[in-house]
Design a protein around this nucleic acid. Structure first.
Length: 196
DNA sequence: CGCATTTGACCAGCGC
DNA sequence: GCGCTGGTCAAATGCG
């Protein structure tokens, strides 16, 4: 099984979105176990315009794999839209250099990505009728955070946003060398706004 | 009993 | 300056 998630497109003016299929044979699957890059799309996407981008994502949905790639029915598969955003965050979060948003079709809100997370907050936000859950990595000295919420437009999808990079390896390191996506030092293209 | 989760309070940034 | 909003804190609670 090949794992790959490097630079999908050399053009630095685009963020990268990859559509992958992730088989989920049980509720205890691990992201790192089943993440398979199915196809790569390129979309222009800005950190500040997530709500606007959902229209783009809806069109992606219509053209993306879903069940049409022969991975089985929707209840047994998790289809993901992955965005990597170097968002040029200003202010107090300026030190956050990596932001990755997964859009996951899943009944599960929290997937096991190999790291241990501690929930520290839950908030109803105005931009979505669904509550947003906040998690911190339990790794010692690791300040990576993630937010998890149901897609406001389609509750079958879960939006998972990772902020920052881990300063340690995942507790399950078996796929480390093959699976750079959820580790530091992966090779993402930068959006021009990140440099301004 | 120890640890994780819940949840209301608090804080900071932003727009008006 | 004030109110709104999103993000975080921390005491209370639940669970194994």
């Amino acid at each position: 099984m090949d794992y790959y998630f490097g630079n999908l497109n050399p053009n630095p003016y685009y963020h990268h979105s990859a559509v992958v299929n992730m088989a989920s044979p049980s509720s205890e699957f691990m992201l790192s176990d089943y993440l398979v890059l199915e196809d790569a799309l390129v979309v222009d996407h800005h950190q500040e315009s997530w709500s606007q981008s959902t229209e783009t994502e809806s069109s992606e949905k219509a053209t993306s794999s879903d069940a049409s790639h022969g991975f089985g029915d929707a209840t047994s598969n998790t289809n993901m839209h992955i965005k990597c955003q170097n968002s040029g965050i200003k202010g107090k979060n300026a030190e956050v250099s990596q932001r990755i948003t997964f859009r996951t079709r899943s009944q599960l809100e929290v997937m096991d990505d190999g790291y241990k997370w501690r929930k520290y907050g839950k908030k109803t936000v105005k931009s979505s009728p669904n509550p947003r859950n906040y998690y911190k990595c339990s790794g010692e000295g690791c300040d990576v955070k993630k937010r998890v919420e149901r897609d406001r437009d389609d509750s079958n999808y879960v939006l998972t946003t990772y902020d920052g990079v881990h300063n340690h390896q995942t507790p399950s390191t078996a796929y480390y060398s093959q699976m750079p996506l959820l580790h530091s030092n992966h090779d993402w293209a930068l959006h021009p706004s990140a440099n301004s």
